[in-house]
């Protein structure tokens, strides 16, 4: 009975965390990753931890990486058309709708100037977080 209660509490905590998630930051990559792709992930994680730490800690913003060449990720890959390196933001709205913004171009074309990439990434995140 005690075990059941613990399990139930854990489930409630997980569901509550999921329910309040507002933004998904998904980073897709191929198996053999290049330096640019790795740098994009590194700077994205750094940006989230620097400017959105509270939201990351409380799962309001969730960051995940996926190997797009693995079968287990096929469904997600199809959803985002992420058959190669892809960086995508998904805003989860209270009514259940999703706003998807693909920022792969930002990543690859601006990462040579990381400060510019960070600036643009923050703009996109702030813009999406304001949506009601």
């Amino acid at each position: 009975m005690k075990n059941l209660l613990i399990l139930f509490s854990l489930l409630c905590v997980t569901l509550a965390a999921q329910a309040q998630t507002k933004l998904l930051v998904y980073d897709f990559h191929i198996t053999n990753r290049c330096a640019t792709c790795q740098k994009i992930e590194e700077v994205t994680v750094e940006t989230l931890n620097t400017y959105y730490k509270a939201q990351i800690d409380s799962s309001i913003i969730v960051f995940k990486t996926f190997n797009c060449e693995l079968e287990e990720n096929a469904e997600l890959v199809k959803k985002y058309s992420a058959y190669g390196s892809t960086l995508v933001l998904t805003r989860l709205l209270p009514d259940g709708k999703e706003v998807i913004v693909d920022i792969t171009d930002l990543g690859f074309s601006k990462i040579g100037k990381p400060e510019l990439f960070v600036e643009k990434l923050r703009e996109k995140i702030d813009e999406l977080m304001k949506l009601q």
Binding site: G84, T104, D105, I111, G112
Partner: peptide
């Protein structure tokens, strides 16, 4: 503003340039 890898399709006509960023499609 291409400081890494980027792909653009640029149309030039009557002195005007219009460009389409194809970077995402390329990498994806």
């Amino acid at each position: 503003e291409a400081f890494g890898t980027a792909l653009f399709v640029t149309r030039t006509f009557q002195g005007k340039e219009t460009r389409t960023d194809f970077t995402a499609q390329g990498f994806k």
